[in-house]
Amino acid sequence: KELVSALYDYQEKSPREVTMKKGDILTLLNSTNKDWWKVEVNGRQGFVPAAYVKKL
């Protein structure tokens, strides 16, 4: 599985998104959309802005 690192804090703005803190390591589930990537963090799945994470 592919991992990404959070470059910035992000506070979810809808139920489809997830909150992350800078430095968090997230499991990348889907990166086909260039703007929003689906990740899993702390057992929750949702979307984060692609520009806020980088692949490890």
Results as ranks from 00 to 15, higher is better:
V18C: 10
D9V: 02
D24W: 11
E12S: 15
A51M: 12
V53C: 14
G46K: 02
K55M: 13
E17D: 05
V48L: 02
T27K: 12
L28R: 01
V48F: 00
A50V: 06
T19N: 07
Y52E: 02
W37S: 03
K55H: 11
R16Q: 13
N33E: 10
Q45F: 08
E2W: 14
V39A: 01
S14G: 13
E2L: 13
K21P: 00
A50W: 02
F47T: 03
L26P: 01
Q11S: 12
Y10L: 02
V41F: 15
K55E: 07
A50R: 10
A50S: 13
V48N: 00
I25A: 04
V4K: 01
E2N: 12
D35G: 10
G43Y: 04
E40K: 05
L3A: 06
K38V: 14
G46D: 00
N30G: 07
Y8R: 14
L7H: 05
K13R: 14
N33G: 11
L29G: 00
L28S: 01
S14Y: 07
G46S: 02
L7G: 03
V39S: 00
K1W: 14
K22E: 07
L3P: 04
Y52P: 00
L28Y: 02
A6M: 02
E17T: 10
K34A: 13
L3Y: 15
G43L: 05
T32C: 14
E17G: 14
K13P: 04
K34N: 12
D35R: 14
E17P: 04
T32V: 11
E40F: 06
V18N: 03
E2R: 13
T32Y: 10
K54S: 12
P15M: 09
L26D: 00
L26C: 11
A6C: 13
Y52I: 07
V4N: 02
N33W: 08
Y8Q: 12
N30Q: 10
D35S: 12
Q45W: 09
L29N: 02
V4P: 02
V4S: 04
S5Y: 15
V18D: 00
R44E: 05
Y10I: 01
D24M: 13
V39Q: 00
K22T: 08
F47G: 00
Q45T: 14
K55T: 10
G43A: 05
N42I: 04
D35P: 02
E17F: 07
M20K: 00
R16N: 13
E17Y: 06
L26Y: 10
K38S: 08
A6V: 09
F47C: 13
K54F: 11
K38E: 15
A51H: 13
L3S: 07
V4D: 02
S14V: 05
R44W: 04
G43M: 05
L56Q: 08
I25E: 04
M20Y: 02
V53R: 00
G23R: 03
G43Q: 06
V18H: 03
E17K: 04
R44N: 06
K22F: 07
N42W: 06
L26H: 02
N42Q: 09
S31F: 07
T19Q: 04
I25Y: 05
T27G: 05
E12K: 15
E12Y: 05
A50C: 08
Y10P: 00
N30F: 08
V18I: 15
V18G: 01
D9E: 05
V39K: 00
N33Y: 09
S14C: 11
N30L: 10
V39E: 01
S5G: 08
V4C: 15
K38L: 15
V18M: 11
L26E: 00
T27A: 09
L28G: 00
L56I: 14
T19F: 05
M20D: 01
N42Y: 09
D35N: 14
V53W: 02
G46C: 03
P15Q: 10
L3W: 13
M20L: 09
K21S: 09
E40W: 07
R44A: 06
K55R: 14
S14E: 09
V41D: 03
L3H: 09
L56M: 11
V4M: 08
E17R: 05
Y10C: 02
W36T: 02
M20C: 07
K34V: 11
R16T: 12
N33K: 07
Y10F: 07
A6E: 00
K55P: 12
I25L: 10
K22C: 07
Y8P: 00
N30K: 07
K13A: 11
E2S: 12
G43N: 08
K38D: 04
L26V: 08
A51W: 11
L28K: 01
W37M: 04
G23D: 06
Q45P: 06
A6H: 01
V53Y: 01
R16S: 13
D35W: 15
L56R: 06
K38C: 14
K34S: 13
K22D: 02
T27N: 08
W36G: 01
G46A: 04
